[in-house]
Design a protein around this nucleic acid. Structure first.
Length: 279
DNA sequence: CCGTTCCTGGAT
DNA sequence: ATCCAGGAACGG
């Protein structure tokens, strides 16, 4: 569900909603959501959400002290603010109650999401977070960075590399397909076959598409909503994702769907020419 | 690198 | 009934 633009939109929505609200209770209805070895969320009672950070698809919250709450929404996780407490819904797994009667609920149909409560030093123990690649919207991100990180895997398919959070943090299946289309690169092209120009187009497309998706508050394909339960708008700008059988916006030929790295991949067979047999 | 696994629900 | 889903860790 949520990739970088959606997680960033959740972050921004909560930044508008949660400050100045004192936590009066934390309830965990489904213990598996809390990563093993982490601290007890009950220690947040009496504190307030102060810092609202993001790294890749991870949300990082601070409370004015050394505590760090890390949240990964995985496929179907939602952090929902309610101005007034509501009856617990079927897939509500964690609830923060605030002194003014409002609440923040973590709802996750598939329960793949995870919470980690730790301190600044403990962030290095959070699996995944401790080995993320560069933020694609960081000023230092560049085609050179991308090339340097994929250089040792010349035979890997480019789509698998885009989805690898150790290389670039935050792309998922939707934006990987959109980036590949924008760069005119077929998802099965081996890394080693990409030209310098193609790498530059990929890096530029990552930045442009993600920034545009954030500006449009993310993509709601199925479940995604922000902290206000509001859908995104970028689904109206998708070029190829979930467009099997529809005409390519560039050339008019038919968008195809194949499996790459175990994931559905949508592409234009003309604008994104397949790898040559020797590649 | 690939398949499997964690879950539930919607589509076919 | 079966397959599929926007993520990512894990094992072989």
């Amino acid at each position: 569900m949520p990739e970088l633009p959606e997680v960033e939109t959740v972050r921004r929505s909560l930044l508008q909603l949660l400050p100045q609200k004192k936590i009066t209770a934390v309830e965990v209805f489904k213990p598996q959501i809390i990563a093993a070895g982490g601290a007890d969320l009950a220690q947040l009672v009496g504190r307030e959400f102060v810092d609202f950070g993001r790294r890749g698809k991870y949300l990082l919250f601070g409370f004015g002290g050394d505590e760090r709450l890390v949240v990964h929404l995985r496929m179907t996780g939602k952090l929902l603010y309610h101005a007034e407490a509501l009856p617990r819904e079927k897939h509500d797994h964690v609830r923060f109650a605030f002194a003014d009667g409002s609440e923040l609920v973590y709802n996750d149909i598939r329960a793949f999401g995870r919470f980690w409560l730790t301190d600044e030093q403990g962030l290095t123990e959070v699996s995944g977070l401790n080995s993320l690649g560069m933020e694609p919207l960081d000023e230092e991100f560049s085609a050179e960075y991308w090339r340097s990180r994929v250089a040792k895997r010349p035979r890997a398919m480019v789509k698998a590399a885009l989805l690898d959070q150790h290389i670039v943090a935050g792309l998922g299946n939707i934006y990987a397909d959109e980036v590949l289309f924008a760069a005119g690169v077929h998802p099965e092209r081996p890394i080693g076959s990409l030209t310098a120009e193609e790498d530059s187009k990929l890096a530029a497309a990552m930045q442009q598409i993600l920034a545009n998706a954030i500006a449009n508050r993310g993509t709601t394909f199925r479940d995604y909503v922000d902290g206000n339960n509001e859908k995104g708008g970028y689904q109206n700008f998708l070029q190829v994702f979930q467009k099997k059988g529809q005409p390519c916006p560039n050339c008019g030929c038919t968008i195809e769907r194949i499996k790459v790295a175990g994931r559905s991949s949508f592409f234009c067979p003309v604008c994104q020419h397949p790898p040559k047999s020797h590649e």
